[in-house]
Design a protein around this nucleic acid. Structure first.
Lengths: 353, 353
DNA sequence: ATGAAAGCGCTAACAC
DNA sequence: GTGTTAGCGCTTTCAT
């Protein structure tokens, strides 16, 4: 294998334009102190030769690596991929992240890290040392892992914490969970529901709590009860079966349920079906995530669309900006939307779809 | 922002172990000519200091970049991500690619390239110059684009062509399309079907033709007819409607249909439903891809599982090996499997599920 | 506003 | 077997 060198380097451009390396470098990096005429001449050579800087060399000389690293939980991610149940969290991350990176000449790279292991620091440290990314995006459940955030802070690498409002280093970002839960609750209230149950996520996820808050607040504002109408699940199907059963077994069961994940919504459909409850006639249902499967259920689910793509896109922008200006200290929130489909209707109504 | 340098470099290790840089380098790269005792001592220092080589520096000094670049079609990929219809092609690529890369200390990076544009070469050339990957994975429809394969060959970068059997530079790889189509056809023949229709993909995709071959051969071997039983689609839903309609409008319509994509299978379900044909009683249906949605249809579809993950994993291995030994000249094939679900049964039978 | 020199962390080539 | 030297392509000082 021929030793592969850069085919056209900054030297070639400098020679072609008849200037020093430094001037070419200045043009590439859009730095000041280059006369327009000069800049144009250099740019012409760059275009002519098809020159593209080597990010390895740029990184070596102490500047940027043009790499943004997104850290996902290894086990959860691999489980999703293997299960092939249509969870497109990673795809949405790529959609927002890759395209935004590309706009700025960056690339996004995904790294799987095992949160539970005791060598998180070694794993992450190795990735940081090897790649030297200019920014890191942490997704739950990594976002609030102090071993991880501490390491990043210590190394001075800008990072975003998706799904975290905590104080501390890094940019806290949320997908508007409280707001999104309000949207769902409002929708049901407007349809005439008064007893609205909520299937929450596990305590380990901060965002699970924020969603409860949104629901509770909206219910309280409307003068509606929430007592005994909230059950916890773990986002998975089985836990949804239990939670939905508990809610529907109550003396005064809800006429509508908001589930904090698509899997728990699927479970609720199953529980309703077993009890002969028609959705949406006897029970309205709203789910969170809006992953692909919700359109293939009977009926298709009204769902909160978590703005994964938009949030990651924003994270990338903030991380790239972090080189120049201080990142926001307050949590950054990107709101989701409610997508209305056939699983919600007024109490006792058939639904329109 | 503090200028970020490598925290612990090869120098620190060399100093700690009391040896030269070169010896450390030899240990890192598992090269010969290092006495076991020496190697152990150096390794101890590496572990102690938590040293991890910088891939930028490794790349700079003319060795590997430890990067594998997977090239996907920009428009198709973004369309899939935005549509959120559960196509998990990219996820399966990541599953096979990232994990295999990780095993060898490599990373996989996805790059979206626009095939149709006239600046493919510039786009790809820029990515190659910037990242200098050690290997490239081409997916359809890039795999047989001579502009792309030519550029890669010219630069001497090892690459794999997924979904291509053509001669020429690079490693040709298939996902066993012919074999997979035979599996599907055999399954239907065993159930007792004699008129088996085939909805093929577009001519631009070589693999569409291979699938037809598999079906035709199996039918011929069984002494069954294929005349008038093959329609072309473009893998999309609308084309599937047309193709399925044509097949079912025939004087002697098939009792079973094999669709070359999940979307075309979905379309076939729709056409059957409109004509009051029950699946699988009146019509058996097999689809290709086995993407997540096929489990959510009524009934769930018997489908050919295209071994995306395994194929990409194999590609990564071959590319990494390419540094040392010559890659295979013959096409490499990874076979898929048939996943039997509720959409296939004997002619006139209800099916067991 | 431009150029020259030094060095980033690592490995190939050669010396010993 | 091990150490030394040079240099990869680029950006950072620092001069001019």
């Amino acid at each position: 294998m021929a030793r592969r060198r850069q085919s056209v380097t900054i030297k070639h451009v400098a020679a072609d334009a008849g200037v020093s390396l430094q001037t070419v470098s200045r043009v590439i990096n859009n730095e000041p102190n280059v006369r327009p005429a000069m800049k144009e001449r250099v740019q012409a050579s760059i275009d002519k030769l098809g020159y593209v800087p080597s990010i390895a060399a740029q990184r070596m000389s102490g500047s940027r690596s043009y790499l943004i690293l997104a850290i996902n939980d290894r086990d959860l991610t691999i489980a999703d991929w293997r299960a092939r149940e249509g969870r497109d969290w990673v795809d949405q991350m790529l959609l927002g992240g890759m395209l935004t990176c590309a706009e700025h000449g960056y690339r996004m790279l995904i790294e799987l890290v095992d949160t539970h292991s005791d060598h998180v620091e070694r794993e992450l440290g190795a990735a940081l040392a090897a790649l030297q990314p200019d920014g890191v995006i942490l997704t739950p459940p990594h976002s609030e892992n102090p071993l991880i955030t501490g390491l990043l802070a210590e190394r001075g690498i800008p990072f975003a914490r998706i799904g975290s409002k905590q104080d501390g280093p890094g940019i806290a970002m949320t997908m508007g969970d409280t707001h999104n839960a309000q949207l769902a609750t409002d929708h049901l209230i407007e349809l005439g529901h008064e007893r609205i149950g909520f299937i929450a996520g596990p305590k380990e996820f901060s965002l699970a709590g924020w969603r409860i808050e949104g629901w509770e607040k909206t219910m309280a504002d409307a003068g509606l009860p929430t007592d005994g109408l909230c059950e916890r699940g773990d986002f998975g199907f089985e836990s949804g079966i239990l939670a939905a059963s508990n809610l529907l077994d109550a003396a005064e069961p809800p006429t509508a349920i908001i589930a904090s994940s698509d899997q728990m919504a699927l479970a609720t459909i199953e529980v309703a079906r077993k009890r002969g409850l028609d959705i949406p006639r006897d029970l309205s249902l709203v789910s969170f995530d809006n992953s692909p499967i919700v359109r293939f259920t009977q009926p298709p689910l009204t769902a909160v669309d978590q703005p994964i793509s938009a949030t990651i896109a924003r994270a990338v922008e903030l991380l790239i900006e972090a080189r120049k200006k201080a990142p926001p200290k307050e949590p950054v929130s990107v709101h989701g939307e409610l997508v209305v489909r056939g699983s919600t209707a007024g109490p006792g109504r058939r639904g329109d779809s």
